[in-house]
C-alpha cells in the first residue's frame, strides 16, 4: 500500500510542478515505484518538465469519464522503469474532475505504487480540493517572499481542516546573498510564522531552469545544489534524518580559493 503526497502552495509560480517532478524522480532514483499525477487541468506542465509531452495519448479526465483504463493513461518515464505520469487534460472543461473521481484513482494507484505525488493547481478552488482529496499528506511549497508565505499560510489553514497529517514545508528559490542582506525573508522567519516542520530548502539554481527546458528533472544531475536538495527531501520522505543543506558552503569554497590566491574579501 503506497502513500499519496500532494504538492501545493496556494500561490502560482513558486515551483510546485518542478518540486513534484524532482521529488518523484529522486524517489524513483532510490528504487521506489512512483506515479506522478498532474491535476492542473487546462494548464498542464508536469509532462513538459518531465519531457513526456509527446507521449500523451489519454489523460486523467479520460480515465474519470471512462474513455480508457487507468493503466492506458499512465506514461512510463524515459529514464526510470518505475516512474510513471498521469497527465492532466489540456482541453477538457476543468469541472469534469471531481473529488470522488480523484479519490478512486489515487486509491487504485496506491495498490500498485509506493508513492503517488500529486501536483496541485494554484488557487484554493475546486482544483485544489480535487488535488488534496486522495492525499495522505501534503507538502507546501513556498518561496522567501511575503506574498508566497501569506498564501502558504492560508493553504496550511485549509489543510489543517482536513483529516490529513500536518503538512510539511519546502522553501524554494532561496538566494543566499539576498537572505544575508535581509532583502529576503529568512528560513527561520518563515518557519516561525508558518509553524510547521521544514522538510527541505532548495537554493535558486540556474541548473533547474536549464534542466526543465531540456525536459529532464534536475534531480538526475549528480552535483547541482538543487538536485542534492531534492534528493535530500526524498530521503526525508523515506524517513531518513538528513541535515539541512548549508547555505554558506558555496561562498566558503569561493573564499578559500580567494584566500589561496592571497586576495582579501
Amino acid at each position: 500500500m503506497g502513500e499519496a503526497i500532494v504538492i501545493t502552495s496556494g500561490k502560482g509560480g513558486v515551483g510546485k510542478t518542478t518540486t513534484t517532478a524532482n521529488i518523484g524522480t529522486a524517489l524513483a532514483l532510490m528504487d521506489k515505484k512512483v506515479c506522478l499525477i498532474d491535476t492542473d487541468i487546462g494548464l498542464r506542465n508536469l509532462d513538459v518538465v518531465m519531457g513526456l509531452e509527446n507521449r500523451i495519448i489519454f489523460d486523467v479526465v479520460d480515465v474519470i469519464q471512462e474513455r480508457c483504463q487507468l493503466k492506458q493513461a499512465l506514461i512510463r518515464d524515459k529514464r526510470f522503469e518505475h516512474l510513471t505520469l498521469l497527465p492532466a487534460a489540456q482541453t477538457s472543461d476543468k469541472d469534469t474532475l471531481t473529488t470522488d473521481g480523484m479519490k478512486k484513482i489515487v486509491a487504485e494507484l496506491k495498490q500498485e505504487y509506493d508513492y503517488i505525488i500529486i501536483d496541485c493547481p494554484a488557487g484554493i478552488e475546486q482544483g485544489f480540493q480535487n488535488a488534496i482529496a486522495g492525499a495522505d499528506r501534503a507538502i507546501v511549497v513556498t518561496t522567501p517572499e511575503k506574498s508566497s508565505v501569506r498564501d502558504a499560510d492560508r493553504i496550511i489553514g485549509l489543510l489543517e481542516q482536513t483529516e490529513m497529517d500536518p503538512p510539511t514545508l519546502v522553501i524554494n528559490r532561496i538566494r543566499n546573498h539576498m537572505m544575508k542582506n535581509g532583502d529576503m525573508l529568512e528560513v527561520d522567519e518563515i518557519t516561525q510564522v508558518l509553524s510547521i516542520d521544514l522538510i527541505g530548502i532548495v537554493i535558486d539554481d540556474d541548473a533547474v531552469i536549464k534542466a526543465t527546458n531540456n525536459g529532464e528533472p534536475v534531480a538526475v544531475h549528480p552535483n547541482s545544489k538543487a538536485s542534492i536538495a531534492y534528493r535530500n527531501i526524498a530521503r526525508r520522505i523515506l524517513g531518513e534524518t538528513v541535515p539541512l543543506q548549508s547555505l554558506e558552503e558555496e561562498k566558503g569554497m569561493f573564499q578559500r580559493v580567494k584566500r589561496l590566491f592571497g586576495m582579501r574579501s
Binding site: R150, D153, R154, I156, G157
Partner: peptide
C-alpha cells in the same frame, strides 16, 4: 491554535489565545 491567513475567530467575552495570529488572520 494558530490563526492563519484568512481565518477568523470571534468570541463573546474575553479571549485567551495560546498561539499566534499570523498576517491576514
Amino acid at each position: 491554535r494558530i490563526v492563519r491567513s484568512g481565518q477568523v475567530i470571534e468570541v463573546n467575552g474575553d479571549l485567551l489565545l495560546v498561539g499566534d495570529v499570523n498576517p491576514g488572520g
